[in-house]
């Protein structure tokens, strides 16, 4: 085979393998698996990594006292224990950046949707939280709320805002979650209101924005928030 044909063949083989991997049926990553080395103390990184391969997840977390990892592992285990169905039926493999990308595992939320001035967003949140018919259906203390901002006006002062519970079993007004490549603007964690507002500065307003999505995960009173933007 001559040189150009060899290069072409290499590209073809690579393309076929790559396509296979793009469409592989990967299990959606759990919270633990989304956790990244970026969150780790660099001093223990190498040893902890070695230990992870040699002794497994739980032993490593115990030995190195990786508090953040511990929390993520507990979250994952409690999720698996309390909601096995939701994990089993998660629909699509999601191509995700590890650790910092919020992952949507189903396509709808149940809640309310209105076109409002963004300055009056607090009112919509209050309206949503006051809907006892919805919150009364929650079966556990662990749940997720999504807030979707879409159909912005040119000044980004007005948008359609949809807020809803991410729970397949709930009855009520179903709202589609926007699909597309998720670009994170706020890493999962506990954030102040000002940090959440600042996160919007990371949006590239030169590009057409399809939606901004805010995800809030609750375990009892504990709340973790992450946000991402989807461009058109």
């Amino acid at each position: 085979m001559n040189f150009p044909m060899s290069v072409l063949t290499t590209c073809l083989i690579t393309g076929v393998i790559w396509l296979g991997l793009v469409f592989q049926k990967a299990n959606p990553p759990t919270d633990f698996e989304k956790y990244s080395t970026l969150e780790m103390d660099p001093a223990t990184l190498s040893d902890a990594a070695y230990s992870m391969a040699a002794y497994g997840r739980e032993e490593t977390i115990k030995f190195f006292n990786l508090d953040n990892y511990k929390k993520q592992l507990q979250l994952t285990q409690s999720a698996q224990a309390s909601e096995p169905k939701q994990i089993e039926t998660a629909s699509k493999p999601v191509v995700a950046k590890p650790a910092i990308k919020a992952v949507v595992e189903s396509n709808t939320i149940v809640g309310i949707s209105k076109s409002i001035q963004l300055a009056s967003i607090d009112g919509l949140w209050k309206e949503f939280l006051d809907q006892k018919a919805l919150s009364g259906q929650l079966k556990s203390e662990r749940f997720t709320i999504f807030a979707i901002y879409s159909d912005f006006n040119s000044q980004f002062s007005r948008a359609r805002v949809s807020i809803g519970y991410f729970d397949k079993a709930m009855k009520g007004n179903r709202i589609d979650l926007p699909q597309g490549k998720q670009v994170p603007i706020l890493k999962k964690g506990q954030h102040s209101m000002s940090a959440m507002v600042s996160a919007w500065d990371k949006i590239d307003y030169q590009r057409p924005v399809k939606a901004v999505v805010e995800r809030r995960d609750y375990i009892g009173e504990q709340e973790t928030i992450s946000s991402f933007v989807i461009y058109q």
Binding site: F32, A49, M52, A53
Partner: peptide, 10 residues
């Protein structure tokens, strides 16, 4: 099964 990047490095 999804791996963490720490595991791959490990």
């Amino acid at each position: 099964q999804t791996l963490t990047d720490l595991e791959v490095y490990g």
